[in-house]
Design a protein around this nucleic acid. Sequence first.
DNA 1: CGCCGTTTGTCCAAACATTAGACACACTTG
DNA 2: CAAGTGTGTCTAATGTTTGGACAAACGGCG
Lengths: 189, 189
Amino acid sequence: MKYGTVLVIDDNPAILTAVKICLTGVFERVVTLTSPDKALVTIAQENPAAILLDMNFSLGVNSGQEGMMWLSAIHRKYPDIPIVLITAYADVKLAVRALKNGAADFVTKPWDNDELIRVLKDAIDKAGEIVPLDQLESEHVRKVLNKCDGNMKRAADLLGISRQTLYNKVKASPLPPLRGEGKLRGEGE
Amino acid sequence: MKYGTVLVIDDNPAILTAVKICLTGVFERVVTLTSPDKALVTIAQENPAAILLDMNFSLGVNSGQEGMMWLSAIHRKYPDIPIVLITAYADVKLAVRALKNGAADFVTKPWDNDELIRVLKDAIDKAGEIVPLDQLESEHVRKVLNKCDGNMKRAADLLGISRQTLYNKVKASPLPPLRGEGKLRGEGE
DNA sequence: CGCCGTTTGTCCAAACATTAGACACACTTG
DNA sequence: CAAGTGTGTCTAATGTTTGGACAAACGGCG
């Protein structure tokens, strides 16, 4: 059980129970909340590896706005904890908006237990990936260089380093194939 | 019209025409394809700022598998070009899978012209954002440090730098800009 | 065509960052 | 308590980054 604590937030106690049964045994600890009000406090206390968040908490409102709000609030304060949204009133627009707002995944009720477990594990795994600094740097450098059509002066400028430094980094890097950008006219920028 | 070329791929010529009418005047150039077969070649030639990709090309098949395949293929080869998917047979699962596969956005048919334009512009804007190297670095450093509960030795190890270097980096920026230094960088272009 | 601005490749010396290694000290844990 | 680990600090050697400078190459333009 290497997957740590999961925080589950849903206003329906029956759902919390069901989810708890499903997740217990897979995760070290399953903490539940019936309202997102104390989510930030609970997160600070429990330091969950992932959060499963329902999207509707006011009876009669099923727009998902509340869940979206809490997603943003939690994500802003804890950008490294993956948040999986779950809702019975899912539509494509809502799902897209959620993912673009930082959700790690989006699940519909009724859910499949195995899928839920898989999705949460997956989210935790992805959030746990750590990239060495050099790799992050050279990837970024290549991306910006591409964007500048190979213009090193401009790329260096945008990267906030000197032209020579960029020059050296590029030489030091064994990545010749800039697949992609032909030598076409510079895109607009 | 600073938004460059858009490549639109849809097997229905009527849709291509409609989209072209909608996008012409907003983008410098609208290139269309009725099949994704030549997408990679066309991208190399046209260097589009964004791609609008339909998800179903075989009559009778509307699973979106084909679009997903092409999304992956194009995204793998041109990771810096935002790809917006569009489909008439949308469901939540498909949308989620698409976004997790690298799609910049996901639009359903019939579409709203203004929304389509907004989505494409947005995707291009986002893809064009360039982060200075230091900022990328310190954000990453803080993320990894967080993940290690502040254990600098381990964080340094994971980052591939020495403990002292990490120590210095951390003390150099005790509370780095989370996201909003009002800087007046000429984002020229 | 020659002029001019820009970019490149190259060099330098000074400033700065990174490194391994060392050490005293604090902190957990058995 | 003693062992094990991590911190904060230091040093001296090594490596990197910097602005500045320069000739050469490129491209646009009158």
